[in-house]
């Protein structure tokens, strides 16, 4: 009995809140912007969704683009893979104008994808999504030993790291020597 009453009472105030939005929508048409990643695939995103990204929000707030200008000048994010940018755009659209939930379980489970997403989100300054991602990264290694963590995150041991560094230096040295030899040969 009481649950139905509660249900109706909670539904009732929801209507007036949505009504002004829908009423206001025709007066100020929602503006859209365009972004693309490394794969040059252009995504159309509403300004409301883009508000999650402090970086893009800062960029568009000073531009005053018309729809045509925006379409003609998509924001290029060459450092972000196409699929990662797609994930970001999807997340922004899903959470447009909504309070973010305490947890997000739809993040990639694969380490590479998650790390790329972290970098993209950090770059785009999407605070809430960065929090979810970092939490997920931390959870990946909870209760694990240092060896297991190295394996999960693919971190070389210090010895391997040093060996790799030495190798790299050696190679660089050889290449440099090769170049100077070649240059000397040329000079001759």
């Amino acid at each position: 009995m009481s649950s139905t009453e509660q249900g109706t009472s909670s539904a009732a105030p929801a209507e007036p809140t949505t009504a002004p939005e829908s009423a206001a929508a025709p007066e100020v048409p929602e503006s859209f912007y365009y972004v693309h990643g490394k794969d040059k695939v252009v995504h159309k995103v509403s300004a409301g969704a883009l508000q999650h990204s402090a970086l893009i929000h800062g960029m568009i707030s000073n531009l005053g683009y018309t729809e045509e200008q925006a379409k003609a000048n998509p924001f290029p994010f060459e450092n972000i893979d196409g699929d990662i940018l797609q994930m970001v755009v999807d997340w922004c659209n899903q959470h447009k104008g909504k309070p973010t939930p305490p947890e997000d379980t739809n993040l990639p489970k694969q380490k590479e994808k998650l790390f790329d997403l972290v970098l993209a989100v950090n770059y785009l300054e999407i605070k809430e999504l960065l929090t979810y991602c970092c939490k997920q990264v931390a959870m990946m290694v909870k209760g694990k030993s240092p060896e297991e963590i190295r394996e999960i995150w693919m971190i070389p041991t210090d010895a391997e790291d040093e060996a790799a560094e030495k190798e790299a230096k050696k190679r660089a040295g050889k290449e440099a020597a090769g170049e100077t030899a070649a240059a000397a040969g040329d000079a001759k």
């Binding site: 790390f115 970098l119 959870m139 290694v141 909870k142 240092p146 963590i149 190295r150 971190i155």
Partner: peptide
């Protein structure tokens, strides 16, 4: 991408979400 090459604010946040034991273990990773 190696995690240790992540920008500092990201690493800060990862530490923030780790518990004390995990952070001490992380110290031993590399």
């Amino acid at each position: 991408m190696i995690i240790t090459e992540m920008p500092e604010p990201v690493l800060d946040k990862i530490i923030e979400f780790s518990d004390f034991k995990a952070v001490l273990t992380l110290r031993q990773v590399c």
